[in-house]
């Protein structure tokens, strides 16, 4: 089925009404992913934006047309591994899926995620990365970029913003031999759909899909600019799209194209409130980090 057919014909398995912020691409990514995953899917959504907007429901009402459970912040990979182990005996075709934010994934959930990959648990783990704890008020997470002004890493006379550097969990999981790892971006839907499709075909281990998810509210940009920023993240190589499939790295086509003539990272950060205090040196530092990471990825994929 073509990407268009998938998106046009398959049922939207997410509740028609959710309370996500205007322009939230995480909601869009969830809807898109479920058009590929289909109804024979069990979903786990830990605390975070997508849980907060009502996907696991409220009171006695559910936000999904598939079974859905809200794990704890840090245990999604383990909990859904338990569901999958039991489901494998009943119906091995059922997908057991996590849809978690970056805080629940790269911070408190990293131990359980890494262990699930090590054990070869056949779950599909999505991380929508909006680069902070956006549901609780824009606190810094392990994927917050260096220098970003966040509510727990504020810029001020004695601070230059976030002291940490964005943690690269896709590469981390690839180098510990997860079965399938990919980076996805809602600005590049065909690539997005292909990667989810590939994940549904993998039966011998953990699939980890890391989605760039610009947060209009937290990044301080307009709701109608979120896809624009998503595209800029890919085209500036700030967020390269790639796959790691059973030992082989492949840079995805949108990023191969972008790599021929990348936009400067300054175009990606322009207009974002969280970066507006950065000096030219600090922006250059970000650019150098992006170039270094891109070169590494090219070596891995060569």
């Amino acid at each position: 089925m073509s990407t268009m057919d998938t998106l046009m014909n398959n049922e939207d398995l997410v509740s028609p009404g959710l309370s996500a912020c205007q322009g939230c691409p995480a909601e869009l990514s969830l809807r898109t992913a479920f058009k590929v995953l289909g109804p024979k899917t069990v979903l786990g959504v830990p605390p975070g934006c997508i849980a907060g907007v009502g996907v696991p429901g409220w009171g006695l009402k559910t936000g999904m047309k598939t079974p859905v459970v809200m794990p704890l912040l840090g245990n999604s990979a383990s909990l859904m591994a338990g569901v999958k182990q039991a489901y494998a005996k009943i119906d091995p075709e059922v997908h057991c899926v996590v849809f978690a934010g970056d805080g629940a994934t790269v911070d408190s959930g990293l131990q359980t995620l890494s262990a699930a990959a090590e054990r070869g648990e056949n779950i599909i783990y999505f991380c929508y990365d909006n680069e902070g704890y956006m549901n609780t008020g824009f606190q810094k997470s392990g994927t917050t970029p260096h220098g970003a002004h966040m509510s727990t890493s504020p810029f001020g006379p004695y601070s230059r913003g976030n002291v940490g550097f964005k943690k690269d969990v896709p590469l981390m999981l690839a180098t510990q031999d997860a079965a399938y790892v990919a980076t996805l971006c809602p600005s590049h839907v065909q690539d997005f759909v292909n990667k989810v499709q590939r994940a549904t075909e993998v039966k011998d281990g953990l699939c980890y899909l890391h989605i760039m998810s610009p947060c209009p509210t937290g990044w301080g940009v307009k709701p109608d600019q979120s896809i624009q920023y998503a595209r800029a993240a890919v085209e500036s190589l700030y967020f390269p799209l790639f796959e790691y499939d059973h030992g082989t790295f492949t840079i995805s086509r949108p990023s191969l194209r972008a790599g021929k003539k990348p936009r400067p990272v300054s175009e990606f950060i322009a207009g974002q409130r969280r970066f507006r205090h950065l000096t030219e040196e600090e922006i250059q530092q970000l650019q150098d980090d992006v170039t270094r990471k891109w070169n590494l990825l090219n070596k891995l994929a060569s």
């Binding site: 459970v69 794990p71 704890l72 840090g74 245990n75 383990s78 909990l79 859904m80 591994a81 338990g82 569901v83 999958k84 182990q85 039991a86 489901y87 009943i90 131990q111 359980t112 890494s114 262990a115 090590e118 054990r119």
Partner: peptide, 24 residues
């Protein structure tokens, strides 16, 4: 039965909860 050996007690109880929700 099956035996699973995860990385911590935190995951032990989490996996058990997943399988327990499935009626095991």
């Amino acid at each position: 039965g099956e035996f699973i050996s995860p990385e911590s007690e935190y995951s032990v109880m989490s996996i058990l909860k997943g399988a327990g929700m499935m009626g095991e």
